[in-house]
């Protein structure tokens, strides 16, 4: 298929998943506020923005700043608004390849989000955004042929999920700010799944291990990485090990096995570094995928030669 279309699909996958992940990230802070009272949530917000989202550590940020930047800022590719805009833009360009239902779902979500507007009731916004994102994923899975086009969509989705989950997990490790592992688990929607797998043995280490390593829970980091790897496998079954072709798979394989086979104790001790590595890997894999399937770099324009 055309590289341009493949690239659009890849980014639709990433941006739609980013909506979900960002909503959950903001939710961690919100849930923590509910649990721990009003103390320290500005600090949480600050921590989240600086550490987790790579912002300015010295800036003094409030919860509403967090909300504005990550939820409503249309100019930021990290915010929910920015993500809806980008997803819809890419969907329009790839409209011929999307199923009618999928295009309609993305377009409608973008339209409605635009009408929700900044205001209060963020909990309503966040849950709406999460639902829409999941709905779009479900429509993609059930109305598109599971061919190359769908593979790019799914690849983008799982790479983004690994990245966002890594960030969400990092919030649990923050020294100050009162973010609890309970909030982290809740924001990932993993309460019941955790209970079933650990039979209720709730402690910080178990929750972290669950969110990073559980092979069955679809929002765990390992699960997302494995799915991304499987997608790359489908895209290029010939296994050429050299060059960009194998680079993405190699990187994913490395991070996955390093997470899988290290003892759980080590993981938890080095959690922030490990999660940062996951984020870096996702960027590297994304670049490798781009170089392999949609090379050409940013769109340049042609300039007339001097006469």
């Amino acid at each position: 298929m055309l590289s341009r279309i493949a690239e659009s699909l890849f980014w639709i996958g990433r941006y739609v998943e980013r909506v979900d992940g960002t909503a959950r990230l903001v939710d961690v802070v919100r849930l923590s506020m509910l649990e721990g009272g009003l103390a320290g949530h500005d600090e949480s917000a600050n921590m989240v923005l600086s550490v987790v989202m790579g912002g300015d550590p010295d800036a003094r940020v409030t919860y509403s700043d967090l909300r504005d930047r990550l939820v409503f800022d249309p100019t930021s590719a990290s915010s929910i608004s920015g993500s809806w805009n980008a997803a819809r833009d890419n969907a329009r360009r790839a409209r011929e390849t999307l199923s009618t239902d999928l295009w309609a779902a993305i377009n409608t979500a973008w339209l409605r989000w635009g009408r929700l507007g900044p205001p209060d009731g963020t909990a309503r916004h966040l849950s709406w955004a999460r639902e829409r994102s999941i709905l779009i994923g479900g429509i993609a899975d059930s109305t598109m042929s599971h061919d190359e086009a769908w593979d790019f969509l799914v690849l983008g989705r799982y790479l983004e999920r690994a990245d966002m989950t890594a960030r969400i997990i990092t919030t649990g490790t923050l020294p100050t700010g009162g973010l609890s592992w309970q909030s982290v688990l809740s924001s990932c929607g993993g309460n019941q799944a955790f209970m079933r797998s650990n039979q209720g043995l709730f402690n910080d280490r178990n929750v972290a291990t669950f969110l990073v390593l559980n092979r069955e829970f679809p929002r765990s980091v390992l699960y997302a990485l494995a799915e991304a790897e499987a997608t790359l496998e489908r895209l290029d079954p010939d296994h050429t090990p050299i060059g960009f072709t194998g680079e993405g798979r190699r990187l994913l394989g490395r991070i996955r096995t390093s997470l899988e086979y290290r003892l759980p104790t080590n993981i938890i001790n080095e959690l922030p570094q490990q999660m940062a590595r996951v984020e870096q890997m996702v960027t590297a894999v994304s670049d490798a995928v781009g170089a392999r399937y949609f090379p050409g770099g940013p769109e340049l324009s042609w300039t007339e030669e001097l006469r």
Binding site: M1, L2, S3, R4, A6, E148, L235, Y293, F294, P295, G296
Partner: peptide, 9 residues
Amino acid sequence: GGTVRMRTT
């Protein structure tokens, strides 16, 4: 090279 190509995956 004097030919037209389309960029595919």
